[in-house]
Nucleic acid binder design. Sequence first.
DNA 1: CTCTTGGTTGAACGATCAATCAAGTCTCGG
DNA 2: CCGAGACTTGATTGATCGTTCAACCAAGAG
Lengths: 202, 202
Amino acid sequence: MNADTRNRILMTAMELFWEKGYGSTSISDILSRSQVHSGSLYHFFPGKQDVLIGVLEAYRDGIEEWLLRPNWEGVDDPLDKIFALLAGYRTHLVLTECTYGCPIGSLALEIHEPDPRVRELLAANFTNWSAAIRGCLDGGSDRLPRDTDRQALAEYILTVMEGAVMQARTYRDLGYFDRNIAMLRQHFALLEREARAERTVN
Amino acid sequence: MNADTRNRILMTAMELFWEKGYGSTSISDILSRSQVHSGSLYHFFPGKQDVLIGVLEAYRDGIEEWLLRPNWEGVDDPLDKIFALLAGYRTHLVLTECTYGCPIGSLALEIHEPDPRVRELLAANFTNWSAAIRGCLDGGSDRLPRDTDRQALAEYILTVMEGAVMQARTYRDLGYFDRNIAMLRQHFALLEREARAERTVN
DNA sequence: CTCTTGGTTGAACGATCAATCAAGTCTCGG
DNA sequence: CCGAGACTTGATTGATCGTTCAACCAAGAG
């Protein structure tokens, strides 16, 4: 099996879904940009939705290599890693003049009646993301209050990222992202202070 | 001018954009559900995008009547109002079996290259929403730390709502919404405690 | 060499899309 | 009763959509 053509299709589809969304990306958009002919595409993918599934699988399998590792290079402190990841999204916003949107979040909101397979993959991508954050929180658990629900906090950080990106993109203004992250930082500062207070009591 | 037909078109388009999104809603979807013929629609709206603009204007102008007033009935405390509004979104999620999405947020993420008018209206809707929250925060400012950036905090609450709805919808699980709101409540609890500490010092 | 398998080519298909428009009906002022 | 503007009707248009398919090609197996 020729994995080269298949990969070119997937890479191109990733780009286009990110730029224009799933619905607004036509098969012929994918074909012309990837220099592949329709017969080849349909040789590898039964239909358009299967291209989407392939893209979501690629995101799912590539989170470590393409998202976490680049953003965590040289960052050791587990709680710093969280804000380093968020800074990575900020960089994307800067580079795209606040046009960037989280590809998973955009697809999750665009696709209203998803095929179960698609929905599961969207959820799996969210789960992988918050699991990575969860790992950071566990690593820094000594600086958080003892009764912190670290899973919920990880999901909450995903929420803040998605909402912050959404607003920055809608307003075309990085300030909305920065202020949101500042609020999250404040929440963390309060949590860490609380944790210190707990420790001095004992 | 016959505002009845125009309104029926707008109401139907609101429903459909919310159910299926903008791109996946065809003009003929709107026509068949609203019992209007294409000529009438194009008599009132130059094109599909102008229907979207009409819908966004209706949301903008109806926030008080359709969103705030119903959710704030019988709620006086300004900070309680914030969580009453969030509870309203929770109710929508319950009633739709976690299929609900914030219509503005969904459109904001779906439409990737928006016409300036559309983008401005999406932003205006966000601004109105956070302005309402901002009003609550101002009303309860005596229970918040003195240096609180209440505008940023209002935007942050919008962020949390959007992210929480997004996750609950993607997972089809209300728990994701509830845990997110619980985290926000915790943040507020910490802020209020801080404010109390400030007051006792003086 | 032939046969098979995996992959490519690109014209073509039916469906659906947003949008048009000429002809018609309604309403109301004069 | 007339005329004019507001609104409705619905067939129709050309573009574009996702998808299909028969013919073709390249390379390895026997």
